[in-house]
Amino acid sequence: MTATQPLLDVSGLTISFRQGGSDVAVISDLSFAIQPGESVGMVGESGCGKTVTGLSLLSLLPPETAKVSGRIGFDGVDLTKLSPRDMQKIRGRRIAMIFQEPMSALDPVFTIGQQISETIRAHFPVNAREARERAIDALAAVGIPLPARRYDEYPHQLSGGMRQRAMIAIALSCEPRLLVADEPTTALDVTVQAQILDLLLALTAKSGTALLFITHDLGVVAEACSRVLTMYAGQLVEDAMVDDVLTRPLHPYTSGLLRSLPRLSAAKSVLPAIPGRVPTNAEWQAGCRFVPRCSHALIACDAPQLLRGEEPHRVRCGRYSELSLPGVLP
């Protein structure tokens, strides 16, 4: 990777939600960068803060309850400092997002075409006819057959795979520099998932759009991304190239996650599950948050841990240099 200016440069991002008079932390001191055109995965289990991170990049967290601090640098501008009005010019135009459930992300009372045109007209000085033409092109680009006819159809008239294509069409209609994709294939069947992954990768490669791919599926990351951020309990615990993390993970949690995949154990054998469970936000400690489940933990691990190691492989584990942890290969 060249030392160009990163497209996205998040540093010290900390997010909490106001809940019943107290603040509940959801993201602690998150720092990572995405280069122009790069495809980066973000993995972790439910509650680790993946979705909140994605939403924060577009200022989509509810301002009444969410407290965001730190810096979200995008193209040299700190997004956390922008007025809602200026952010609106970036959202949908420079940074777009797609979601897991296209049925709830699309508005049921507007046609697919209206929803794409609306996005285009919000960002470009075009009239309704031109917007319609561009929307039909966008539908064609995502492989929707008979795009001129689909333009006038409502979300419920489309199948799950077609709805996800329509959502991608909306997101890419303004040629954003960064696409945040939050579990975009999780609700789809595996044969349709393969289609959508191929489509996403082809379209983003063509337009040079960078991708932040949020998922719990390590197979999807291996397929779609070159780098992966592993999240645990609101912290980034490992940031590495995908192939490196699959073969030689440096964090015990990442290793445990990989080893617990049924695919990697002999049929019928006991799966190496990670003992215990993910701590609730109230249980987060100042030191390494994985300590209660980690078989390598020492007393020193109870002290706060920083991201260590050399680019491009950083890990939040004080013992990483002494441990040799298994990845997908034993």
Binding site: S159, T191, Q195, D198, G219, A222, L261, R263
Partner: peptide, 27 residues
Amino acid sequence: KALLSSEPLPLPKAMRTGTRIVLEGEI
């Protein structure tokens, strides 16, 4: 065959050698 080849495998690039069969359309 298509179902098996559609499954994304958590393997490094060099080890993902199988040809993927991407089916058209949906059920």
